[in-house]
Amino acid sequence: MSRILVVDDDPLVGKALFRLLRREGFDVRVAPDGATALALLDDFAPDLVLSDQRMPGMTGAELLAQVGRRLPRARRVLLSGDAVPGAVAEYGGGVPLVTKPWEDGPLLAILRGALAALERREGDVS
């Protein structure tokens, strides 16, 4: 069961993502900000971190950069209410960008795609 760490300062957004991903069979944890998310990294060891961009304290991009250093195998996806609607762009460092409001189908497809790439790579290694 893939582990996904969701980071969003809006608790209702976090809950919605939590429910959506849990239904799809993922092991999900939600953190309200970057610091909490970083504290969870060792313990939870997520396969994927899905983070909002604009949060108090640390932005999603800053958080994902640290995640990349501390947990290189984890896939990272950035979620933002600022970017171009409907666009899924590379947000530097190979991090896909999903815009808010997301649509469940496409969001899940992106997450599954990222996790499938991880499995393939780790499958090759082992």
């Binding site: 209702l12 957004v13 919605a16 429910r19 239904r23 209410g81 600022d82 409001p101």
Partner: peptide
């Protein structure tokens, strides 16, 4: 305004479609 509306709209939409 757009940014502030996006957050609630994202979970409202997600929840309703669920």
């Amino acid at each position: 305004v757009a940014h502030e509306i996006n957050n609630p709209m994202s979970f409202v939409g997600s929840n309703v479609s669920a």
